[in-house]
Amino acid sequence: MEFVKTNALSRTVLRPAALGTAVRRTAVLTATAGLLTAGLLTGPASADGPAGERADTMAACAYYNGNALTVYGQRGDRVSQAQCLLANRRYLPWGDVTGYFGPKTRAAVKKFQSRHHLTADGKVNKKTWYALYHA
Rank of each mutant, 00 (worst) to 15 (best):
T98G: 06
L40E: 11
R90A: 06
A31S: 10
R54C: 10
L35C: 05
P103S: 13
M1H: 11
A131K: 12
A120F: 00
A17Q: 15
A45F: 08
A22C: 11
D96R: 07
A82V: 07
V13C: 01
H134N: 14
A27T: 10
Y133A: 02
K104G: 05
T26R: 13
R115V: 07
A22V: 04
T26A: 15
F112T: 02
A135E: 00
P44V: 12
W94R: 15
L9Q: 08
A68T: 10
A45P: 07
Y100K: 10
Q83F: 08
G52I: 02
A17Y: 11
R106W: 01
T57H: 09
K110M: 13
V71Q: 15
L36I: 08
A120Q: 00
G95D: 15
K110N: 05
Y64P: 11
G102D: 12
L118G: 02
R15I: 13
G34L: 15
L9I: 09
A107T: 09
Y133E: 00
G20I: 13
T32Q: 14
L85E: 14
Q74M: 15
L40H: 06
S46P: 01
A18V: 08
T128G: 02
K127G: 01
Y63W: 14
R78L: 11
Y130P: 00
S114H: 10
R11Q: 11
V109T: 09
Q81C: 10
H117K: 05
P93D: 06
S114T: 13
V97C: 08
L29G: 07
A107K: 05
G73C: 07
L132C: 04
K127V: 01
Y63A: 05
A27Q: 12
V71W: 09
L92Q: 03
L14I: 13
A45I: 05
A107R: 07
Q113S: 03
T119H: 00
D96F: 03
R75S: 09
K104H: 10
T12E: 08
L41F: 03
T6H: 04
A18Q: 05
V71Y: 14
L19C: 02
R90T: 07
N67G: 10
N7P: 00
A62L: 04
A47F: 11
L19S: 10
M58C: 03
R106K: 13
G49M: 08
A47C: 12
A82M: 08
A8W: 09
Q83N: 06
Q83P: 04
Y130L: 06
K110C: 05
L35P: 01
A68E: 15
W94S: 11
T70N: 01
K126G: 10
T37V: 05
R15L: 15
R11S: 12
T32D: 13
D48P: 01
D56P: 04
A131I: 02
G52Q: 01
A135Y: 04
F101R: 04
T26P: 00
A47N: 14
G95S: 15
Y64I: 09
L69I: 14
A59Q: 07
A8D: 11
G39Y: 02
A60Q: 06
V79Y: 10
F3N: 07
A135S: 07
T42D: 08
G66Q: 04
L69C: 02
L86V: 09
T12H: 07
N65P: 00
V124Y: 00
L85K: 11
A87F: 03
Y133T: 00
Y64M: 05
Q83I: 10
T37P: 00
T32V: 12
A22S: 14
T119V: 04
P16Y: 12
